[in-house]
Amino acid sequence: MPEITYRKAISQALREILQSDPRAFMIGEDIGGYQGAYAVTRGFLKEFGPERIKDTPIAESVIVGAGIGAAMAGSRPIIEIMTINFSLLAMDQIINCAAKLHYMSGGQVTVPLVIRTVSGGGTQLAASHSQSLEGWFAHVPGLKVVAPSTPYDAKGLLRAAYQDPNPVMYVEHSLLYGMKGDIPDEEYSIPLGVADVKREGSDVTIISYSRMAQVALKAAVRLEEEGIDAEVVDLRSLRPMDTETIINSVKKTSRAVVVEEGWKAMGIGAEVSARIMENALEYLDAPVQRVASADIPMPYSRPLELATLPNEDRIIEAVHRLF
């Protein structure tokens, strides 16, 4: 199994899709000549040409809209929105159109569209450029939302997202692009809506996704040193969400902490804890704990940014509150 980066895993999946399916093309800002703001599409313009690697004006609404229209007509566009912060300019197309067309048309129309974007903070880009808005999309019926935390998941989920007949928000994390991991040589995909137990444990379940799943794994190593055996569940898909895997784990450990990089209010942690309460209340030894970013717009200053983001220490503190 070759070891490759998260960035390379995504770009490999994209390349294989473009090579094998003539219906596929990509649309986005600076994905061609500039080779992608995060270099995921490096070399693509040269390999696939401008008809399939479409650089656009800065115009998120029509980028997504053009993808929706093309998908309705039978093409398989893959959209790149440079970061999730800019998806806000395309909200009408994503929420009012992409998510609803299949239902509103009584099933006559499908929108098999992948919207790739980048979420998260941690690089001092300040309030307007550091948001984790994937939960907003996960709120909306008609959309699927995935957010991989490893190269293996990144590739497998992108393949599945591409094959799915629904619009899928595929959410990358800028601080994971350099992360390395093993990937099989043969083709594979990971079904949407299936969580992954990234580490087995018996004392507490830490549920997370994207970069925070990696932080949770590191926290788990430290917890082990003090004799707490933590299980880490990586959601991978936010919608559909794999309630069963969460519940099975909590039934085993009787304790749960949910970790997300976004804001706590109305967030993923709130959703996960509600599901635990609905399905496994009697198994809990303590109230579910939530770890999230501070309830403020992201500050620019490095020390303030670090104080805002969840980290290993805060996860460990939350676990301690359960015992």
Binding site: Q124, L125, A126, A127, S128, H129, Y300, S301, P303, L304
Partner: peptide, 16 residues
């Protein structure tokens, strides 16, 4: 520099 004496007390940065 993200310092307390900056125009936004270090909360905005170069772009804000």
């Amino acid at each position: 520099f993200g310092k307390a004496t900056g125009s936004s007390g270090g909360k905005g940065g170069s772009m804000h």
